[in-house]
Amino acid sequence: MSQTIRHPEILEIARREGKVTVDGLAAHFGVTLQTIRRDLTDLAEEGRLERVHGGAVLPSGTTNIGYEERRVLNPEVKDAIARACAAEIPNDISLFLNIGTSTEAVARALSGHRNLLVVTNNMNVANILAGHGSCEVIVTGGQLRRTDGGLVGNLAGNTIKQFKVDLAVIGCSALDKDGDLLDFDIQEVGVSQTILRQSRKTFLVADGSKFTRSAPARIASLEAIDTFFTDAPLTADLAAKCKGWETEVVVAPDGAPCLE
């Protein structure tokens, strides 16, 4: 198998799992360790991976990966997290859903809910819920980010300030090891911070790949989140912090509370 065939698959594995190892890739492709090391070096030189001991991880730059790439990244995991989250969302409430493919998955999982008022700065969420006859949808307005259908800026933030919703469900681009929620777009961060202030209760939906990524702008700490829905157990240190913060951690697909 040539490197032109291996390289895209290596990147897909890295996006799906957060990192790749030399040993694992050599076994997967049936090639030598030296061949894989050359592949990883080539991809690192192109800026598509970062070399670490024993393998490589996705680069921790200042720009998010494209929306279409994010949309097809871990879809089954995101759907499982979304179902676990939706199971904890009652009927007859006001709800905020922000920008992101994980919150879009939550919107799809709300098909059986009744009498929801959903405020969103995500055009994709609005389109998903447009056919939901028992759901009233309010779109914030704001500057349209054409890359992913997000609405950001002062208009979006000022619209959100007109509401005090029962529950906000937000996503993030990365999660730091100390529990900070991170993102790439400063304007989006400002809107997300306003959402948290204007919500009585807050949920975070983020898959395990977010723990292997980095982004430059801080939204908030997990301390500000009531329930965190994910698919992978937290480190012992972060699990202990969440316990001290009284942030519940629910691990999909079974929706079981993390008791660590």
Rank of each mutant, 00 (worst) to 15 (best):
Q3E: 14
H7P: 10
H7L: 10
P8N: 06
L11Y: 02
R15K: 11
E17G: 07
K19T: 12
V22S: 07
G24S: 13
H28W: 12
F29D: 05
F29Y: 08
Q34L: 15
R38Y: 12
D39E: 02
T41F: 13
D42Y: 13
E45N: 14
G47W: 11
R48H: 10
L49G: 01
R51M: 15
H53S: 09
G54A: 10
V57L: 03
T62W: 02
T63A: 12
I65S: 15
R71A: 15
V77R: 11
K78C: 06
D79Q: 14
I81G: 03
I81H: 07
R83C: 04
D92F: 12
I99L: 03
G100A: 06
G100M: 08
T101P: 01
E104R: 04
A105L: 10
A109Y: 08
A109V: 08
L110M: 15
S111T: 14
N121D: 03
N122M: 02
N122W: 00
N124H: 14
A126S: 08
I128N: 11
I128W: 05
L129I: 04
A130T: 12
A130F: 03
G131S: 05
H132I: 13
C135D: 02
I138M: 10
I138E: 15
Q143K: 14
L144F: 10
T147Q: 15
G149R: 03
G150M: 14
G153C: 09
L155D: 08
A156S: 13
A156C: 11
I160W: 04
K161M: 12
D166S: 01
A168W: 11
I170N: 01
I170L: 07
S173E: 13
L175R: 00
L175Q: 00
L175I: 02
D176M: 01
K177F: 07
D178T: 14
D178R: 13
L182R: 00
V191C: 08
T194W: 05
T194F: 03
I195R: 04
R197A: 15
Q198N: 10
K201N: 11
K201G: 09
K201V: 09
K201A: 04
T202L: 06
S209Y: 02
K210Q: 02
R213V: 03
R213I: 00
P216M: 08
A217S: 13
A220S: 15
S221V: 08
S221D: 11
E223W: 06
A224W: 01
I225F: 01
D226F: 12
D226A: 14
D226W: 05
T227G: 04
F228Q: 00
F229V: 04
T230K: 02
D231Y: 07
D231T: 04
P233S: 11
P233Q: 13
P233N: 10
T235V: 07
A236H: 02
D237F: 07
L238S: 01
W245H: 04
V250S: 06
A252W: 02
A252L: 05
G255Q: 10
G255M: 13
A256V: 14
P257M: 09
P257R: 15
C258S: 08
